[in-house]
Design a protein around this nucleic acid. Structure first.
Lengths: 344, 344
DNA sequence: CTGAAAGCGCTTACAG
DNA sequence: CTGAAAGCGCTTACAG
């Protein structure tokens, strides 16, 4: 088994500043000065050092640097699912702000699993990210307390933190849903269904609250059978929609709780023989090209990300410690599906 | 200016293993053993150490660990745009493989700018990521040579590396485009337009080549005015489409070079008074719900990411150094727009 | 303008 | 089962 002595070159045999210093015939500190562009080096010395760097293929090891300096120039982003189109623009916005501040992004998906969220967040803390942007899956974040105390700037987005005091950037989920449902009511609907995400998710609960508020304000009853909360998996949403649309007194309109739900409801309605009105929370690509176009309550995902990241760097720059709450407004976009009158 | 003495708690005042050792009344190495779950610690000693860890809010500093161990348990992912829906499933697939290997993902967008790509890649190398998955924006990657030599496992995805020998995972862009255009020809089209991304991008060039091959194989001429390459910005694509569709002998069908192009062409065609056939490279959400449904050449973005990440970890596990090329096949999905006969 | 020494917080290689 | 010493590759604080 001579196999034991595998090459194992990892990064162990990379040249270090010491190697560069030896080759250039200068001290370690001089190499450090050149690498970091600090002043106080003769042009001639600088040239010798640069030559040694090129010849050796030296690249500074930031792990060592970080250990000494205390800041990693990186921030962590924990979201639900990198593949969900809602998070694309949000991630990108966070990235752009980070980039403007010279920081890299480390990110991961919680898959809506609180344990996985915690595991990820703590792994990022162990890497000593300077800050965290978190779209929480769980509702108890006390595990973050030591980290916050130690100075890890943390901003929650899309949903608030649970059982700790922290910055949060939200959309007006309640108001948006209420507006959307009121819009359906204004177009004559009285039996309106609500299909949303799992109720333990803050946005789902808020949007449901908005739905109920609009119904109540209009003096309309809400039948239990009109409301369905649960996973956004297509099969679940499909059967929920079919149930809500059947029976003796089917709904004439549906409010869909998020973009995953909306796209499935669109498919269900397309198979139906009667028109059913639809308003969805979240805008999505090509919503205007469907027949009818899909009326939505749009939230600005990029603005959520941007606001959160800016708040984070503001904090890193010494902003006071009191937790702040930002709420972004939503916007109703009429495209046809929300303006259909009740059938029959 | 007493302001100079700002709190600055960064992570400087976090407890270290030394603090834990002092509090628990044990040696440093014992704390290390407990933190890393190594054997050889009395249950009683372990308990004392655990208590000290909790009381102090200790969390291991991975920067120090990395410096000593040589591996960071993180990989870098450089892509074009985190917000592009094509990259969502790809990123997610890379992340899942990384997670299965206990690694975190550090990622960034090149914004299709070769300089920004290089800057990002080298920043990741300075962080000593164990490996890189790169969707290249540039076509000269010689800057990576010292890194590859130093053992940074690197896999290119979607587009090959330029001027260096490296692993690459591609879709069959040539074959897919050829199939798509042949499909239009089979439905009677003889004047077919091609609207694609910038020609310096490998996928764009390959798909154009596929288009030309299909036309040639059918004995059809290609007029210069039928082909338009450039940015995928909606305005550019819109005017390209309008130009191709006007004139004395307009095309009766369009092949769209990627999903960004396709969605804009769909909008242009919707405003037209005659039917024009369309096949797009890349599948996209709701393509089946448009009228007509959009026929596409689908590639498996998640499989691209998965294959690349698996190859990367295979390499980190000691797979031989010879560069390998993986090509994934594409799939024609008929939905209506590609089966329309020529108008007139 | 330049550099030697100490130290960041861990792990490694040993010794007991 | 336990721990003291050395070292990973940088930066900091000083001294010349």
């Amino acid at each position: 088994m001579a196999e034991t002595a595998r090459p194992e070159h990892r990064y162990g045999n990379r040249p270090t500043m010491k190697d560069v210093a030896a080759r250039a015939g200068v001290g370690l500190k001089t190499v450090s000065r050149v690498v970091n562009g600090e002043p106080g080096v003769t042009p001639d010395t600088e040239r010798r050092v640069q030559e040694a760097i090129e010849a050796l293929g030296f690249r500074r090891n930031d792990s060592a640097r970080v250990l000494r300096k205390g800041r990693t120039a990186s921030i962590g982003l924990v979201l639900e699912d990198l593949a969900d189109p809602f998070y694309g623009p949000l991630s990108r916005a966070v990235e752009e702000v980070a980039r403007a501040h010279g920081a890299l992004l480390i990110n991961g998906s919680s898959a809506e699993d609180p344990d996985r969220e915690q595991e990820l967040v703590l792994a990022l803390c162990a890497r000593r990210v300077d800050g965290l942007v978190v779209i929480p899956a769980g509702d108890d974040h006390r595990y973050l307390e030591p980290e916050l105390k130690a100075g890890v700037a943390t901003v929650f987005v899309d949903r608030p933190a649970g059982r700790i005091d922290a910055d949060v950037v939200l959309s007006d989920n309640f108001g948006g849903a209420r507006d959307g449902v009121a819009h359906l009511i204004a177009h004559g609907h009285r039996r309106i269904g609500f299909i949303g995400d799992q109720p333990r998710i803050h946005t789902a609960a808020e949007r449901l609250r908005g739905y109920r508020a609009a119904m109540t304000e209009a003096g309309l009853p809400v039948h239990d059978s009109w409301v369905s909360l649960g996973s956004t998996a297509p099969e679940r949403v499909r059967s929920a929609a079919e149930a809500i649309l059947s029976g003796p007194e089917p709904v004439t309109a549906i409010f869909a709780g998020n973009n995953r739900v909306t796209v499935t409801v669109v498919r269900v309605l397309a198979d139906l023989d009667r028109p059913v009105a639809l308003v969805g929370f979240d805008d999505f690509e090509l919503a205007d090209m469907l027949r009818p176009g899909v009326t939505v309550i749009a939230q600005d995902a990029a603005a959520l990300g941007r606001t959160a990241a800016e708040r984070l760097f503001h904090r890193l720059d010494g902003a006071p410690d009191t937790a702040q709450r930002f709420e972004l407004s939503t916007r109703l976009i009429r495209r046809g599906s929300g303006e259909l009158p009740p059938a029959g």
